[in-house]
Design a protein around this nucleic acid. Sequence first.
DNA 1: TCAAAAGTGTTATCCTTACACCCATGT
DNA 2: ACATGGGTGTAAGGATAACACTTTTGA
Lengths: 319, 319
Amino acid sequence: MGEQPKGIKKSKTGRKASDVKADLIAVVAAVNNSGPCVLTVEQEAALPSGPFELAHRSLQSGLRDWVEQQTGHSLGYIEQLYTFADRDRIGAERVISISYLALTREEEVTGATRRCWGSWYDYFPWEDHRSGTPPIIREVLRPRLMEWADGAADTATRLERQRRAAVAFGLDERAWNEELALQRYELLFEAGIVEEATRDRRSTELASVPGRPMVADHRRILATGIARLRSKIKYRPVVFELMPPVFTLLQLQRTVEALAGRLINKPNFRRLIEQQELVEETGETSVDTGGRPAKLYRFRHAVLNEGAMAGTKLPLARP
Amino acid sequence: MGEQPKGIKKSKTGRKASDVKADLIAVVAAVNNSGPCVLTVEQEAALPSGPFELAHRSLQSGLRDWVEQQTGHSLGYIEQLYTFADRDRIGAERVISISYLALTREEEVTGATRRCWGSWYDYFPWEDHRSGTPPIIREVLRPRLMEWADGAADTATRLERQRRAAVAFGLDERAWNEELALQRYELLFEAGIVEEATRDRRSTELASVPGRPMVADHRRILATGIARLRSKIKYRPVVFELMPPVFTLLQLQRTVEALAGRLINKPNFRRLIEQQELVEETGETSVDTGGRPAKLYRFRHAVLNEGAMAGTKLPLARP
DNA sequence: TCAAAAGTGTTATCCTTACACCCATGT
DNA sequence: ACATGGGTGTAAGGATAACACTTTTGA
């Protein structure tokens, strides 16, 4: 910031015209025995959030403050998700939402704060494929999506819609891709199949409404967080933010499966983890839960320093 | 939205306390014969930007308006980069910057607008490894970084700094990783080696200043864009946004090389492109530029519909 | 003829995938 | 004994990397 820090930006309209409100909004994810869940308020219908204010030192610290104040939960790992201006919001002042993904463990409940964990798959019943493709896809979503496609004005649009639905939901022998969680929600929204899409416009159509809805566009933000996390666990060791300090390899696998919404091959998973040297043995074994005692592991925090996870996909020339 | 859209958010301070200004800021990238470049204003010292205003239909359209107004350039492909609150900015009103990455071709100059293309590697001379490791790393950056490391209070911090520098810049036999462009800039900033870091605090240290500086934190935003693009070209077909409608495979390779800042193995690159079916022949050949005529190709826009680029890195169980 | 660029093969190696199988413990 | 989970081995297939080589043009 020299002598003229922002000199290049001159609003032609008055100063007031460019004033906005900025909301901070958090997807706080954890995994417990019943599966992946998200920290909520308001009877599990909203994500913790609040306005960014002068008192906040930074966006992240503002977010931490709001989450702690509303839920009594303090955050560890945080990353930014996306920023958007509320759609179809007109009026005196614009609102910008800056969303974040946070990963924690569901800790001991201390205060008497209204903290509720909502299950991911209550909001997105079509996303859990751990016990095979959920029936809701074939029985509800597929027919509704085809209806929507058939409602298109011309043939080109109809085919286009069918293809989009097939890609997103793995229809017609296509493979399921768990990373498309956001695309799927947005497709359902566009097709008017999801409650949030119809509740503004007095629901002329029948509301078949699969999955529990949320306030405003919070469910879309949750979908964004899920999609981001599902892709990120594949190239960054973030799962460990969700694990206790010490764990067995099967516990780790179950956690990843909960997030990905699909099952993993055990032997190969173990090799993958071990060959990347992400964990080290503690030397102890678990207090058995139904079978042979398992070795306990802890995360090797050193890997964060190793600058690993390079990932070249280009055929580089030898230097 | 519903009956109580944002009811859960009650600012304890007055309304005014949460009002902010939101700036939109664009990294508009292109590649020409002289290499990768970015659209700038103010004598190549700033990125196009402007405040988000009531008149704008959305964040993206606001960005398009500002860029077009300031440079006469209209944008195609856009993606959001990052949102941050200005660091060390105190005072009456907070400023939030929402940054975007846009990809275009450097088109025919039409209007008499002040549009300038700045070369990436003028701003980041250490990032271009197409002709081997640039001397500036061994001759300037390495010594300065070691100085900085030695200035640490304790041994642990010193070793930590040395390791960070080595990872980021590929020192000590480590491999160069072109995707770490942002980390590198931030490391230089933290070490006070870069002009932006010293100019606030009256530069007590000598300003060795490698690379052309920019206004405010625009250079950091540019680094963010470069890093994002370098990683994205590996798993999404975004390069084609930078290409003319018809091109030879070598032109495509040269473009990718310009972005990545390193050379690619030709035969393997061709196979990679062809086996992914990203392009199709036009049937024509290029008006030769120095050798045997090359087949011309065009991008297969169909691939965008194929929902390809799944990318599982987890050893899934058979369904 | 030579330089420059366009193209084609071939091989070794690594990683992923799939699957088969044995081990240790509690009931 | 057997169910449950822990844990190891291996072989096939595909992708990647490295490099050698031929072809076609213009100067």
